[in-house]
Design a protein around this nucleic acid. Sequence first.
DNA 1: TATTGTTATACTCTATAACTATA
DNA 2: TATAGTTATAGAGTATAACAATA
Lengths: 154, 154
Amino acid sequence: MEAAEDAGREAWMLLFQLFRSNRREIAQLHSEFDLNPAQVHLMLHVNPESGSPMNELAESLACDASYVTGIVDKLEKRDLVQRQPKPDDRRVKLIALTSQGGEIRNQLMARVSQPPAFIAAMSAADKETLRDIFRRAAVDLPSPGADWMHDLKR
Amino acid sequence: MEAAEDAGREAWMLLFQLFRSNRREIAQLHSEFDLNPAQVHLMLHVNPESGSPMNELAESLACDASYVTGIVDKLEKRDLVQRQPKPDDRRVKLIALTSQGGEIRNQLMARVSQPPAFIAAMSAADKETLRDIFRRAAVDLPSPGADWMHDLKR
DNA sequence: TATTGTTATACTCTATAACTATA
DNA sequence: TATAGTTATAGAGTATAACAATA
């Protein structure tokens, strides 16, 4: 269908603009917490109960292991995370949240999951429709790692 | 409404994931054209007829003027843009596309406006609903510079 | 005096390669 | 021999400050 093609295209361009309108809020988040995007990502992806091995974090951040070392160094210096030995494999270090880190993580989570202005301003009906459409889209996506936010559900 | 709050929240989290699933395609675009995000942005924002002053480009890229100098240096070296004097204000340099640059710009535009997988895979009805919702959202946004893609319409 | 653009410089982000400790 | 993490280093991306030319 010609019309549907155009609808998809226009929806995409509009979404692009809307996302862009959110740029400032995101920058605000980073400067407020004094954490760069990778650091925020790590804080949210660490398993808050058992901690996470660094190689798993590198995977989920899609970055090199050496960079994770650097991120963890900084977060550890700020007493947000702690390196812990893994008893059954002493090559591995588990990154665990400190109590302060857990606090920050909760604050981050609350902020990140808060819908940006362009969604918050929608009518209740539009929000629900949007959610339904995205639920469907999330299902039939090729989806490599679509469950990356599993730990955000807690 | 409690339910609508949750709907907005869930829609946002889903959108976040969906966007993330598109990460690879974007990286692909950049490496294919051998242009970093700022360079792509500049290529798309230059006025293709009259050229654009560098300070205007710095504004739209939300970066420092000195960085625009660097971007333009690289693009000029690749013969994609050209610095031109502005007759009525000799402090200003207009950045204009070369014919080759115009070609690349067209290719970029075609690619950027192509909806990502998570939209392309939607039903025709969902695409149209999505477009309608975003149209409404784009209208009543506080919207600083929501028309940034004005020149993409040509 | 204010503005446009450039230069020099420095800082942050991120990857690669070489290394160590452990498996 | 292979894997997890670290170190040293280098390259991109980006900002700040000082400056020159023009308004």
